[in-house]
Design a protein around this nucleic acid. Structure first.
Lengths: 338, 338
DNA sequence: AAAAACAACGCAAACGTTTGATTAATTTTG
DNA sequence: CAAAATTAATCAAACGTTTGCGTTGTTTTT
């Protein structure tokens, strides 16, 4: 029995009033009398009336939907972030649609286009590794679709974004190692193309020079983030004339490769490793990093979502300021496991 | 400059033809002449015409959207599964909206309702731990919204589902341990309320009896899956008159707790642990499980999505058969790390 | 040459809801 | 008591697209 969903028209027909009255009645519009309003609501309830969303969206030209484009949902960081986004969205009665760029620029462009055609009310984006042009986002301006970037953000300020201060986080990390007595600290950084690499390097340099030490460029090496690349970086440090006693890795994956390699060489105890948190259970490792930079994906997602919802609701003024939100990251020192 | 999106009407006005012709022209309808068709397409292109999705959805009563409801996106298994779902959906030009039940029955009911109101074309669901009633899904039948369950499925056959055969997987796991020479094998199972617990127990029993051994019920204990619960289960086995030499844990989290506890007690080398894969990096642990049951979340997501899209496209026949798809799970034996 | 077939397009309704303008009935006010 | 204000409801248009049916001309078939 194919029950067609109840419509406003249907209710109007039964009650012998006009559809507009029903609509207004359901919305507590003042120009509908109390008695009629109650009759409407009761009948609506008993008929299991549910507003036809598609019709409303169409009518209002709003979709109550926000799009999320991110590189890889299977990365723990993003799965937490989108989890937060969804939690926030549902509170405000918004729906989330999402898609993955798989770190591919062309795919990202397509997805932005698709989201636009889906008429999302706003977009949350963590850009792909490949992305260095941003026309596809600027295009959204003319359609009045606000965009908030999070975590992986473009390298300029005149956009809305939420991100972690990797620079200050790195300063904290290096300071921590310096306080522990380390005097030669290596850094396995990411590719030079990434803005995140730059931030890490800057933080490293600042911490070093602030502590009146000399910055040795050969202690910071770039890495393609693969296992092989990590091994090469490790070898570089093992053969270094000022062999480091501590190493800051670009992320937990690199840390994992590094620890694995060092254990194989049986030199793991010669090093303290500090990483940036990606993997929730890395602290369960026997020789886990002594500290991790926590980037609070849930918080980032939450803030980004709220900013976007703000932008959607605020009448767009031409000269509005840009939200440039920095989430402070913290250095989490791993307690010694017993 | 608030450019209003181009509409079919607009194109019709400019070309001095009717909107219906424009619509038909854009869709290569045979009753539109080749010249007019080209004129239409050219103008549409030059005006950057994009169909108004909301209008089409409304008109057709279809949303080209599938909903996904799952317990926790931050669980690795589900983040992989939904990643697959999205990949499949986008191939067929469908959009995915999702929401998390956070393993809460009431929330799940609400979300199903919401998805229905959003007029999703179909629903993919992995049910929450709390769910033992299924009225909220049955209700969707009358609205002709197909539902495909995956991984966490209801305990009956007259629904569409994709799941892993935990029973056969458990048989493989226990067989493997028996072949390794273990004669007393413990199992830390989940709560009795879960169907998955039942399957594991059945598999365990089958493997034991098939090998002409006696099934000892006290070697299978239920556990609430917390760290504390795991420790209690561990103690039970440590004090067991036939102390097991191998333990099958409900999942990687339990395995993690167990290994941690055994290491603390310094008895880790007395046990082989076999687990069910949840955490991608657990094999990096020093005393990682000797084997893991791989449940192929990507494959499950992929199959579930394809089945759902099939159902959406097939005209619903009353007496249609149910897809009961079992994804064979495999026992992955961890290579010895050096 | 009349009938039939066809090609190319327009008309109008429909999908369900919202909303500004309007009307009708009632009540208040000076 | 007439005019003004208030209340309660209706009307009709609009949002953009699709689609069954009807209407032209034109071409082909008998």
């Amino acid at each position: 029995m194919q029950s067609k969903p109840t419509t406003i028209k249907e209710i109007a027909r039964i009650l012998n009033i006009s559809p507009s009255s029903v609509s207004r009645g359901l919305h507590d519009h003042p120009s509908i009398g109390a008695v009629t309003r109650e009759k409407i609501k009761q009948l609506a309830k008993s008929l299991n009336y549910e507003p036809n969303n598609a019709a409303i969206l169409f009518q209002k030209g709003k979709t109550y939907t926000i799009g999320v484009i991110l590189p890889e949902l299977s990365e723990h960081f993003f799965s937490i972030a989108i989890s937060a986004i969804e939690d926030e969205a549902i509170k405000k009665n918004y729906t989330v649609i999402f898609a993955q760029s798989h770190d591919n620029y062309d795919q990202e462009v397509k997805l932005v286009e698709k989201m636009k055609n889906q008429r999302v009310d706003g977009l949350l984006v963590s850009i792909s590794k490949d992305t260095s042009k941003f026309d596809h986002f600027e295009k959204l301006n003319s359609f009045n679709i606000p965009v908030v970037f999070f975590d992986r953000i473009p390298p300029f300020k005149n956009v809305h974004y939420v991100a972690c201060s990797l620079e200050s986080a790195t300063i904290k990390a290096v300071n921590y190692l310096l306080k522990k007595g380390h005097r030669s600290i290596g850094m396995i950084n990411g590719p030079t193309t990434l803005y995140a690499s730059e931030e890490r390097k800057d933080g490293y340099m600042q911490a070093i020079t602030f502590n009146r030490l000399k910055f040795d460029p050969s202690l910071v090496v770039n890495c393609d983030l693969t296992e092989q690349g990590t091994i090469e970086a490790a070898d570089h440090f093992l053969n270094h004339k000022r062999k480091p006693t501590a190493i800051v890795t670009f992320n937990d994956y690199v840390a994992l490769f590094l620890i694995k390699y060092f254990k194989k060489l049986n030199v793991i105890n010669d090093f303290d490793v500090v990483s940036y948190a990606n993997l929730p259970i890395i602290s369960y490792l026997d020789n886990s990093p002594v500290a991790s930079v926590e980037q609070y994906p849930y918080l980032q997602g939450q803030k980004a979502a709220n900013i976007l919802l703000d932008l959607i609701h605020s009448p767009n003024s031409e000269n509005q300021a840009y939200y440039n939100t920095i989430v402070e990251s913290d250095l989490i020192v791993n307690e010694v496991k017993d």
